[in-house]
Amino acid sequence: MPKPTKGPRLGGGPAHERLMLANLAAALFTHKSIKTTETRAKRLRPLAERLVQFAKRGDLHARRRVLATITDKTVVHELFTVIAPQVNERQGGYTRITKLGFRKGDNASMVQMELVLEPVTPKVKHSKTSTVTAEKPVVEEVVVADAAVEEPVEAPVEADAAADPDTTDTK
């Protein structure tokens, strides 16, 4: 018998795991946020991301592929009409997992898994040539051709020294 490639099964066989992950995905799309164990959330994340990618495509084939996983038509309709337009500009990372602590009964690590529905802010790409030209201020030189430059006239130092006898040097 081939062994599972993605870790241990979550409390049963492969069919039980598929159904449980489908129900978790349906709850995530319905409520936009669910509280579950860390292991289940880590197993749910790739499935939920793939279903959102299908919803972003929006065609009939994508809708039927999602309906093969999530059988509730109202959840699929909400995924395609509400969630997909909100994450249309996002390239990936549709889910967020936040650790909450440990469950009291069995000390299982609990997390909050939620959809990231905030609008994405595009990053501004800076190239080296554009940043150098943008950061240097432009200095305009004003050239005056006919301006006469006046030199300061120095006052005779000897006349001041003769007038004040205290400042004279005596050797």
Rank of each mutant, 00 (worst) to 15 (best):
159 A>I: 12
112 Q>T: 01
67 L>Y: 08
123 K>A: 15
169 D>K: 03
13 G>I: 02
162 A>M: 12
79 L>M: 00
33 S>R: 11
26 A>E: 09
162 A>S: 13
27 A>L: 08
64 R>L: 15
104 K>V: 03
69 T>K: 14
59 D>H: 08
152 P>L: 06
128 K>P: 04
42 K>Y: 04
119 P>F: 09
64 R>Q: 15
130 S>Y: 04
153 V>M: 07
65 R>Y: 09
111 V>Q: 07
35 K>L: 05
47 L>G: 00
53 Q>M: 09
77 H>A: 11
102 F>M: 05
4 P>T: 10
79 L>W: 08
141 E>P: 02
84 A>R: 05
87 V>K: 05
117 L>F: 02
100 L>Y: 00
39 T>V: 04
168 T>E: 14
51 L>D: 04
163 A>I: 05
123 K>M: 12
108 A>P: 10
75 V>L: 04
85 P>I: 10
74 T>F: 06
166 D>I: 08
56 K>F: 01
14 P>K: 10
129 T>A: 14
83 I>V: 12
80 F>V: 03
14 P>T: 10
131 T>E: 13
117 L>M: 10
129 T>K: 13
31 H>F: 15
13 G>L: 03
98 T>S: 08
70 I>H: 05
96 R>E: 04
99 K>S: 04
49 E>Q: 08
37 T>L: 02
61 H>M: 09
113 M>H: 05
5 T>M: 12
21 L>D: 02
59 D>C: 03
86 Q>D: 08
61 H>D: 14
163 A>K: 11
65 R>N: 15
45 R>P: 00
1 M>W: 01
168 T>G: 13
114 E>L: 00
79 L>F: 06
121 T>S: 07
94 Y>S: 07
73 K>H: 14
16 H>N: 09
155 A>H: 07
119 P>Q: 06
38 E>I: 08
125 K>Y: 10
83 I>Q: 03
87 V>N: 03
60 L>T: 14
143 V>Y: 13
84 A>L: 06
167 T>V: 14
60 L>I: 11
93 G>K: 05
162 A>I: 12
157 V>E: 07
16 H>Q: 15
22 A>S: 13
140 E>G: 01
